[in-house]
């Protein structure tokens, strides 16, 4: 949404991100997509080659995109194994109870925040 506001004001934007479905749904003007675990959209930690390639792609897309919604997917991989894809927000028979507790705690905290005035009007 911030990219959209900037573009409307005449500032060209590019998002470097790893959650393509969310970015596309939001109507993001230009996207450089790294299919990596969430947390390091520019590239693997301490892999300056990968990070520099992502930055080059972003700078390039700013100037080459011809229409809104342009996506450039980079070929970067996290590892030879694809196992990491199962980790994020995994729901397993072992963590079901823990997730419910997490939800209860989160709802309790939200109420507490409201009572204490910790919310944006």
């Amino acid at each position: 949404m911030t990219a959209r506001a900037l573009e409307t004001a005449g500032i060209a934007t590019v998002v470097i991100g790893s959650a393509l479905d969310i970015l596309q749904r939001a109507g993001t003007p230009r996207i450089v997509f790294n299919d990596l675990p969430l947390g390091n959209p520019v590239g693997k930690p301490f892999d300056s080659t990968m990070q520099n390639e992502s930055l080059s792609a972003a700078l390039n897309l700013l100037y080459t995109a011809q229409s809104p919604g342009a996506v450039q997917q980079l070929p970067n991989q996290w590892s030879a194994s694809e196992g990491w894809r199962d980790n994020f927000m995994a729901i397993t028979p072992h963590n079901r109870e823990q997730l419910l507790l997490l939800g209860e705690e989160s709802r309790r905290q939200r109420l507490l925040n409201r009572e204490q005035g910790l919310f944006r009007p």
Partner: peptide, 18 residues
């Protein structure tokens, strides 16, 4: 923030703020 804390880390600032 919600990121993949099992797989990776954010100890390299350049990986998210180059």
């Amino acid at each position: 923030l919600s990121w993949d804390k099992i797989t990776t880390h954010t100890n390299d600032r350049e990986s998210y703020f180059p």
